[in-house]
Measured scan of single mutants.
Amino acid sequence: QYKLILNGKTLKGETTTEAVDAATAEKVFKQYANDNGVDGEWTYDDATKTFTVTEKPEVIDASELTPAVTTYKLVINGKTLKGETTTKAVDAETAEKAFKQYANDNGVDGVWTYDDATKTFTVTEMVTEVPGDAPTEPEKPEASIPLVPLTPATPIAKDDAKKDDTKKEDAKKPEAKKDDAKKAETLPTTGEGSNPFFTAAALAVMAGAGALAVASKRKED
């Protein structure tokens, strides 16, 4: 009698068979294992007439167990938060979910874009303008004329002030004479000065007065 010990991944146990020799028993056991989907390494112990079949655990490639991950970057252009961060993800969709959660946790809500070549996400917050509040242009400074500094008044001594007054009066006198001369030139000519009769009478009076003066002097002599 021969014995078979099964150490399979899905089947474990023992069974026996009657055979004329070990070779015949081995054929029977291998057919049995094959029928039950057991495929492994076989050993035989002649002392105990025991066969053992052991399935090795399937070696799984690490790449099959853990999907390949890629590093993705997020650029934040927020109104109050600006910067960059990264995450590792199996695909862009997974990275996007992580980045949007990160942005939401930090109060950033804007327009999202993605560049597959650089594996970069960008979120930009738009500045909202309040309706009716149009931007006002800064007032242009008016052209200013530079002020001319005033010349301080120079105090005048009393004596100098009197001299100035005297000079002013002396300066006025010639001007007054000139005014009188002008008035004389502009006076109208009277009839006496221009009538020949009056001129002859005046000469006769003057001659008579002269003769009287000569006669009076002779009497005195």
Score class of each variant (00 low, 15 high):
5 I>H: 11
53 V>A: 11
12 K>E: 09
23 A>S: 15
41 E>R: 15
36 N>D: 03
46 D>I: 13
45 D>W: 11
47 A>Q: 12
41 E>Q: 15
44 Y>T: 02
49 K>G: 14
31 Q>N: 14
2 Y>H: 11
2 Y>P: 03
26 E>H: 00
9 K>G: 08
8 G>I: 03
39 D>A: 15
1 Q>N: 11
24 T>W: 15
48 T>D: 10
52 T>D: 07
40 G>D: 01
7 N>Q: 11
26 E>V: 00
4 L>H: 04
3 K>D: 07
34 N>E: 01
23 A>T: 15
24 T>A: 11
8 G>N: 03
31 Q>A: 08
40 G>A: 03
32 Y>V: 04
9 K>D: 09
35 D>Y: 10
53 V>F: 08
46 D>E: 11
47 A>E: 11
44 Y>K: 02
44 Y>H: 05
14 E>F: 12
31 Q>D: 03
48 T>P: 10
41 E>A: 14
4 L>Y: 03
25 A>L: 01
12 K>V: 11
47 A>D: 11
25 A>M: 03
37 G>C: 07
11 L>R: 04
37 G>Y: 07
23 A>R: 07
24 T>S: 14
15 T>H: 07
6 L>R: 03
47 A>F: 13
46 D>Q: 15
34 N>V: 01
47 A>T: 12
16 T>M: 09
54 T>G: 07
27 K>H: 03
52 T>F: 07
7 N>S: 09
37 G>W: 07
8 G>F: 05
6 L>A: 09
30 K>F: 00
1 Q>G: 12
41 E>Y: 14
13 G>Y: 04
42 W>N: 00
7 N>C: 11
19 A>D: 05
39 D>V: 15
22 A>R: 03
28 V>F: 10
55 E>G: 05
14 E>L: 10
27 K>E: 01
31 Q>E: 03
27 K>I: 05
41 E>D: 11
43 T>S: 11
43 T>F: 10
2 Y>L: 08
50 T>C: 11
17 T>D: 05
8 G>M: 04
22 A>E: 05
17 T>K: 11
37 G>H: 07
51 F>Y: 03
32 Y>T: 04
40 G>P: 00
15 T>C: 07
18 E>A: 14
36 N>C: 07
47 A>G: 12
32 Y>L: 08
7 N>G: 09
23 A>M: 15
24 T>I: 14
12 K>I: 09
37 G>A: 10
39 D>Y: 15
6 L>W: 03
51 F>C: 02
28 V>S: 12
12 K>F: 09
54 T>K: 09
12 K>T: 15
11 L>N: 04
40 G>F: 03
33 A>C: 10
14 E>N: 08
6 L>T: 09
3 K>N: 08
29 F>T: 03
8 G>K: 03
19 A>G: 09
4 L>R: 01
15 T>W: 05
37 G>V: 06
5 I>T: 10
18 E>R: 14
36 N>Y: 03
36 N>Q: 05
39 D>T: 10
39 D>W: 15
6 L>Y: 03
55 E>Y: 04
30 K>L: 01
35 D>S: 15
13 G>H: 04
36 N>E: 04
47 A>I: 13
11 L>K: 04
53 V>R: 01
12 K>G: 08
40 G>L: 01
2 Y>F: 10
49 K>W: 09
29 F>E: 01
27 K>R: 06
43 T>D: 08
15 T>L: 08
38 V>E: 02
6 L>P: 07
55 E>P: 04
48 T>N: 11
38 V>I: 12
29 F>Q: 03
18 E>P: 14
23 A>C: 15
27 K>V: 04
33 A>H: 01
32 Y>Q: 05
20 V>W: 13
30 K>I: 00
51 F>E: 00
50 T>G: 10
12 K>Y: 07
30 K>H: 00
51 F>P: 00
10 T>D: 06
45 D>I: 12
43 T>I: 07
46 D>P: 15
34 N>K: 01
22 A>V: 05
54 T>F: 07
25 A>C: 08
34 N>F: 02
31 Q>T: 08
20 V>N: 11
36 N>P: 01
8 G>E: 03
24 T>L: 11
26 E>I: 00
6 L>F: 06
4 L>F: 07
30 K>A: 00
16 T>C: 11
43 T>C: 10
27 K>G: 02
15 T>R: 10
12 K>H: 08
40 G>E: 01
45 D>S: 13
6 L>G: 05
54 T>Y: 08
36 N>I: 06
54 T>I: 07
2 Y>D: 01
52 T>M: 08
54 T>R: 09
50 T>A: 09
50 T>F: 14
51 F>I: 03
28 V>M: 12
43 T>M: 11
31 Q>S: 09
50 T>S: 09
32 Y>S: 04
46 D>G: 14
27 K>Q: 03
54 T>H: 07
23 A>E: 15
21 D>M: 11
53 V>T: 07
16 T>G: 15
37 G>T: 07
34 N>R: 02
55 E>K: 05
50 T>D: 12
27 K>M: 03
49 K>V: 10
3 K>F: 08
44 Y>L: 06
16 T>F: 11
41 E>G: 14
50 T>L: 15
43 T>L: 10
18 E>S: 13
5 I>R: 11
3 K>Q: 09
35 D>C: 14
13 G>P: 03
52 T>N: 08
48 T>H: 12
10 T>L: 06
8 G>T: 05
25 A>P: 05
52 T>G: 15
10 T>Y: 06
1 Q>M: 13
25 A>K: 01
22 A>T: 06
33 A>R: 02
21 D>P: 10
31 Q>V: 06
13 G>R: 04
51 F>M: 04
8 G>P: 05
47 A>W: 12
26 E>N: 00
13 G>M: 03
12 K>S: 14
54 T>E: 07
15 T>Y: 06
52 T>C: 09
47 A>H: 13
2 Y>S: 05
50 T>P: 02
24 T>M: 15
14 E>M: 09
1 Q>T: 13
37 G>M: 07
26 E>F: 00
5 I>G: 11
28 V>R: 15
54 T>M: 07
54 T>A: 08
23 A>V: 14
10 T>W: 06
47 A>K: 13
19 A>Y: 05
34 N>A: 02
10 T>F: 06
33 A>V: 04
21 D>N: 12
8 G>S: 06
20 V>Y: 13
10 T>A: 06
3 K>E: 07
6 L>E: 03
4 L>W: 02
28 V>A: 13
5 I>K: 11
11 L>E: 04
33 A>S: 08
29 F>Y: 06
18 E>T: 13
2 Y>N: 03
10 T>K: 06
53 V>H: 03
14 E>S: 14
33 A>Q: 01
38 V>L: 13
33 A>Y: 02
33 A>L: 02
55 E>I: 03
32 Y>C: 05
16 T>Y: 11
20 V>I: 11
37 G>I: 04
50 T>H: 15
47 A>L: 13
45 D>A: 12
20 V>G: 11
51 F>T: 01
24 T>K: 12
23 A>P: 15
5 I>C: 09
32 Y>E: 02
48 T>F: 12
14 E>C: 12
38 V>P: 01
46 D>M: 13
18 E>G: 13
6 L>Q: 04
28 V>Q: 13
42 W>A: 00
14 E>G: 07
17 T>W: 10
7 N>D: 09
22 A>H: 03
24 T>C: 13
4 L>Q: 04
40 G>S: 02
50 T>M: 15
28 V>I: 12
43 T>K: 12
1 Q>Y: 13
37 G>K: 06
14 E>V: 14
45 D>Q: 12
27 K>W: 02
32 Y>K: 05
20 V>F: 13
51 F>V: 02
42 W>I: 00
53 V>N: 04
49 K>N: 09
1 Q>W: 13
3 K>W: 09
52 T>S: 11
34 N>I: 02
34 N>W: 02
18 E>K: 14
19 A>W: 06
24 T>H: 13
7 N>V: 09
11 L>F: 06
45 D>T: 14
